[in-house]
């Protein structure tokens, strides 16, 4: 167990590699109750969110979700989140645990008329059910009446007469669901789900496997790979930055200028063909020049070598570039590669 903010969370149950492999080959369930849940509602909610968050809210049909960023005026990342549209004027936001307070302040600061905000985090526990068998298990667990969401969509399910939000999203690179429900039923829900997935190889998974899975999938971690130090554009998140939409959100103009001029640093992926795995804060070199710092790194259970993400000087951030990583006073060869490290078979 480890402390993550005020949450006591399991790093591992049976072992990080064991849990990691279960998610890649069958399924795993993660307790993500620490995540924050907000509701933004009202006739002006869409317009407000479109001026506050980066992605284009107008593209979001009822029942759909989208990955989006909350930036400061310089494009620095305050938080990355998923925005779901539950109904015409009813939006559900899932934010990082460590950012709940900051996000709430940011969103409520300039709340216009016709928009209401609720921090519903205390009302929700949550589990992520991830892996190639996740949907099979969910069908068994929720029964035939369950309206199965499509990729990135969200539906209402009923379990023992309790409302459960079932979103087809995740943070592992596998197909799967994120499930939101009342904390009062969490214990029964978790054990019921484990039971439903028993014959499909479902395993409980901790924070350790969550980190190696998301890193292989090239998904950034807020606080490590995303921060105020680099813009969301430098982080490679342009597809979620709504440059084509009309509304201006904080950081949009700065990041569009960065795009025109070219960012000085880029979040790039690299692998260590042989040698010690990369860890956050290791330095990368091109010859004698320090060209970047590692923000995430770990041994990849799927690839069998060290993998990492680092902000690299743009001229050495192209895939195929050979660099060196400093580890305990020596240099180890590394290679810049394309993201993601792992992509599931279609």
């Amino acid at each position: 167990m480890t402390m993550f903010g005020d949450w006591a969370m399991p790093v591992q149950y049976t072992g990080i590699v064991d849990e990691h492999n279960a998610v890649r080959s069958a399924a795993g369930v993660f307790d993500i109750s620490h995540m924050g849940e907000f509701f933004v509602r009202g006739t002006n909610a869409a317009d407000f969110l479109n001026h506050t968050l980066s992605n284009d809210v107008a593209k979001l049909a009822v029942g759909q979700g989208q990955y989006t960023l909350m930036c400061n005026e310089l494009g620095g990342v305050i938080d990355d989140l998923i925005l779901y549209r539950l109904a015409e004027d009813d939006y559900f936001l899932v934010v990082n645990a460590a950012k709940i307070g900051e996000d709430e302040k940011y969103l409520t600061q300039f709340l216009p008329a016709g928009v209401s905000f609720e921090n519903a985090s205390p009302r929700y526990a949550a589990l992520a059910l991830q892996g190639p068998k996740a949907l099979t298990i969910a069908r068994k667990f929720f029964g035939e009446a369950w309206p199965e969401p499509r990729r990135n969509a969200i539906t209402h399910a009923s379990w023992n007469c309790q409302d459960v939000l079932t979103a087809r999203t995740g943070y592992t690179g596998e197909d799967g669901l994120e499930l939101f429900f009342a904390p009062e039923i969490a214990d029964n829900f978790f054990h019921g789900l484990l039971k439903a997935g028993e014959t499909d190889g479902l395993k409980p998974c901790g924070l350790g496997a969550r980190d190696t899975l998301r890193l292989e999938a090239g998904l950034p971690l807020n606080g490590n790979d995303l921060s105020l130090a680099h813009s969301a554009f430098a982080a490679g998140l342009e597809p979620f930055l709504g440059f084509a939409k009309e509304p201006i959100y904080p950081g949009k103009n700065v990041m569009m200028e960065q795009k025109a001029a070219g960012a000085r640093f880029k979040l790039a992926a690299f692998r260590v063909p042989s040698g010690p795995p990369p860890r956050p804060h290791y330095h990368l070199f091109s010859g004698a020049d320090a060209v970047g710092e590692v923000t995430s790194g770990a041994p990849s259970p799927t690839l069998g070598c060290g993998i990492g993400l680092a902000y690299l000087r743009a001229d050495v951030a192209m895939p195929g570039t050979a660099l060196e990583m400093e580890v305990r006073d020596r240099r180890v060869p590394v290679e810049v590669v394309k993201k993601p490290f792992y992509k599931r078979a279609a």
């Binding site: 790093v11 590699v17 350790g208 010690p276 860890r279 041994p299």
Partner: peptide
């Protein structure tokens, strides 16, 4: 010496 696991060094 240093022993590195998936978790940490």
């Amino acid at each position: 010496a240093v022993v590195e696991s998936v978790k940490a060094a």
